[in-house]
Design a binder for these strands. Structure first.
Lengths: 240, 240
DNA sequence: GCGATGTTTCGACACGTGTCGAAGCATGCG
DNA sequence: CGCATGCTTCGACACGTGTCGAAACATCGC
């Protein structure tokens, strides 16, 4: 029993075409009798029975016996979510063989995601705030601003108490697509990014979402977070 | 012709144990070279290469070549979501015929893992440190001690600067098999646990690895971390 | 250049499992 | 009771695919 022993075997249950068809057929939540599912999947009743038994044992289906019919349905919403989630993964589209353009590289390095800082720089800054205890991982994809954090933002000229949280909270964890790491979003992220512009740590490009760090910006980033230009630029690959 | 032709084949990709292990290993978002993934999965390099190629073609992974290494990572958050979602489906618990023995329950509740605190209590304490910003998630399965954290440990009587890190670091994230959560390990974890014994927050059983929390311990845990006895005991149901 | 290391390709083998025919239970109807 | 319907169990077969050894390819360091 490893940590996730289920996942391979669960996936194996969905991996069979006949079973996958049955599961998809049950996505609407309506229970269906075994025979109908057999017909959907285009297999005989014996085969379908075998499949349904496995799905049942695997915890993907539930069954209710009514007379001589046995009605199968998905075991719960989490199963439906998993099926739909699987459907979102597709074979790679036409691969872009060409290297990233200069513009794309700048975007990857630092950019605005809506109105907050993203890209490697966004991730690095957020990481710095976490390491220094200004932020802490909160419940439900939120960051919590610590006491030390509130003081620091205050010294920067940002009164955290004055920032109005949205329903999703004051500071959210936004998952960066390309970096696969969280960075600071939400009202606090927006205000902070605006502050960086005003203080001329960074300059936003007019034509795109790219962001450029000023010399002063690098100095301050190093001073406050120990972030160095080369380190961010080189943070290409994680490592052990 | 189904509207979801991919789902079976995508699931088939995750269905292989070796591939599943690789995918789980990549869940943290950090790219890893092929060789390391081969080692994780316990297969030879040839086999791993075949698997990685399939996952790549299936759109589950992305790859970046650097020198003679090829770093693989999940193709995107949607893949991570799918994996985690799959993990939420479990075979119908083969009902524990016999309830856990009294001793096993104590072990599950709190125990020592080598020389640091594990079990539900270990997870809860670590979570508390994260929430209060004493620790932060670091690179490579490490925790970083924040400034606030160093102060707190100091007040507790632990001079973090004096603790010698091993090569793996000062504070490591140790994954608890039964709780499926990380808890504090590494030299800091060992010293901290020793401190808890000295301060009589907890008492180690002589005969086993179980740990018992004293009344004073519960008082202090509540005061420092807001941890209540019932909450830890009741944390039976999983997760997110 | 050469050897060492990391990764992929090729070929062959063995095991797992999805399939169906036939038969066995269970339920419902006359 | 006897027959039909719905579903499951049993047994046998064939195909797919995960595995590794051997070898080719790529890159790095000297």
């Amino acid at each position: 029993m490893g940590s996730h022993p289920n996942i391979a075997s669960t996936a194996a249950l969905i991996a069979d075409p006949a079973r996958a068809i049955m599961l998809v057929a049950l996505l609407d939540g309506h229970p269906r009798p075994a025979g109908e599912l057999a017909y959907c999947a285009g297999v005989t009743a014996q085969t379908a029975s075998s499949h349904l038994g496995k799905l049942l044992a695997g915890g993907l289906l539930a069954v209710e016996t009514e007379g001589r019919h046995r009605y199968y349905r998905l075991a719960g919403p989490h199963v439906a979510l998993t099926i739909e989630s699987l459907a979102s993964i597709g074979p790679v589209e036409i691969v872009r063989r060409r290297a990233l353009t200069r513009e794309a590289q700048k975007l990857r390095f630092a950019r605005c995601c809506y109105d907050h800082l993203a890209g490697r720089l966004g991730v690095a800054v957020t990481q710095g705030m976490l390491e220094r205890g200004f932020l802490a991982i909160g419940e439900g994809k939120r960051f919590d601003v610590t006491v030390a954090g509130a003081e620091w933002f205050g010294r920067m000229g940002l009164d955290v108490a004055k920032i109005k949280p949205t329903r999703a909270g004051l500071a959210r964890q936004c998952l960066d697509w390309t970096e696969r790491q969280h960075h600071l979003a939400g009202p606090l992220g927006v205000h902070f990014t605006r502050l960086l512009c005003v203080e001329t740590w960074v300059r936003r490009e007019k034509t795109s979402r790219a962001v450029e760090v000023t010399p002063k910006g690098w100095r301050c980033l190093k001073e406050h977070f120990g972030i160095e230009e080369q380190a961010v630029a080189a943070a290409d690959l994680g490592k052990t």
